Lab assay of single mutants.
Amino acid sequence: MRVFPVYAPKLIVKHARIFLTGVIWVKDLGRLEFEKGRFLLPRKSLPKVKQAILELNELIEAQN
């Protein structure tokens, strides 16, 4: 598990694309899981977490 002390979308996306499957922890967002290079949306999450995951997945799609 990698810990990101700040929310840096480009760096987080780079990590997810390299490792494809895993878990990261982002300060103020908490634990985020990714599989096959995409972030998974938890069943229950705060609106800011949901927005961050959608933003990260959009960045991943834009890079493909």
Rank of each mutant, 00 (worst) to 15 (best):
I53V: 13
V26T: 03
P5C: 15
K50Y: 08
L40Q: 08
V23N: 08
L20W: 06
Q63A: 13
I12V: 04
T21R: 10
R43N: 10
L20A: 10
K50Q: 06
E55S: 08
M1G: 15
V49K: 11
V49G: 02
L46N: 14
E35N: 10
F19R: 06
G22F: 01
D28T: 11
A8S: 12
H15P: 01
Y7C: 03
S45W: 09
L40M: 09
F39G: 00
V26M: 01
A62C: 09
A52E: 02
F39H: 03
L32I: 12
G37V: 06
M1N: 15
F19G: 04
F34L: 05
E33S: 15
E33C: 07
R43W: 04
G37D: 03
P5A: 08
Q63W: 13
L29A: 02
A8R: 08
Q51E: 09
K27L: 15
R38Y: 14
K27D: 15
A62W: 10
L41S: 10
V23K: 14
A16K: 00
I53Q: 02
M1T: 15
P5K: 06
L46K: 15
V3I: 04
L56E: 01
V13W: 02
F34N: 00
T21W: 09
F4L: 02
W25D: 05
A16S: 09
N57E: 03
N64L: 12
I53L: 05
I18C: 06
E55P: 00
L40F: 06
L59H: 05
G22W: 01
L54S: 09
A16W: 01
R2C: 11
V13F: 03
L32G: 00
V13G: 04
E35L: 10
L29C: 04
K27M: 15
K50F: 07
Y7K: 01
F19Y: 13
R38L: 12
P42G: 09
P47V: 12
A8K: 08
V3L: 03
R2A: 15
R38T: 10
D28W: 10
M1A: 13
A52T: 06
L11N: 06
G30R: 01
L29H: 03
G22D: 02
S45V: 12
G22K: 02
